[in-house]
Amino acid sequence: MASLKELKGRINSVKSTQKITKAKQMVAAAKLRKAQAAAEAARPYALRLASVVGSLASRVTLSEASPRLLAGTGRDQVHLLVVANSDRGLCGAFNANIVKAAKLKARDLAAEGKTVLFYLVGRKGRAPLRRDFPKAILDTFDTTGVREPGYAEAEAIAAEVLALYDAGKFDVAHLFYGKFKSALVQEPTEQQIVPVPTPTVAVTDGAVVEYEPDEETILAELLPRYLRNQIFGALLENVASEQGASMTAMDNATRNAGELIKKLTIQYNRSRQAAITTELIEIIAGAEAL
């Protein structure tokens, strides 16, 4: 059995681990609130943009002249998987789940004979995906420089994705991120971003709306914005999900550390008692021998 001193050392080390997990849990809770507020604030723009793009797209008939972002390249061979992960760990299986979803999709596509490429956002997805698909990583986007990814990052990512699309590097793009359901549940989500899937909207009113310059031009102008906003929305969801997952994982870790401390303390007390008893027996035996 471990000595008293060893046990004491272990108890102390678990206690300091518990302090760290508890602190991280509280930080995550505070950040989660902020992330939720940010996601809330982003909703009006996203809703309006989606409704405008949707109503415009329903008016425009697809033709040769249609914007390529809407009509696609006419092929379905090369798929780009944009995988958004977080930069930091200590958030349970959050990143692993997103990576798993992306890998599954990649395997499915590969089984259909398609070419799969990756564009990775965030630090945590790089290692596992690079291990499985060493040649398919097209590019990565670094978000470690900023505290929270915001619209500027979404713009940069969208610009790179659009540049790749214009260069004909891929035909279809999918975006992977963790959708925030609640602090306990984050759902790895896949969403097609290129060609832009047209949002379905109910036609609001029969009013005749004038378009200036014209539907096609406005649509061509709005599609990249819509894409940027989709990516922005995914980044926001990801931040909230990461904090939620982190909070849950750290709550579990704190609880486990508490249990471990309890167990170790019992063991420590037992050993201490055993040592005292042995000492007493020795003294009594000594006195009797006299």
Binding site: E210, E212, T217, I218, E221, L222
Partner: peptide, 19 residues
């Protein structure tokens, strides 16, 4: 400042969409 020229909007403007 619309792309096709600056325009002013008052109450009761006709439905209209522009960049």
């Amino acid at each position: 400042p619309g792309t096709e020229g600056e325009f002013g909007v008052l109450e009761g403007h006709a439905p209209f969409t522009t960049t």
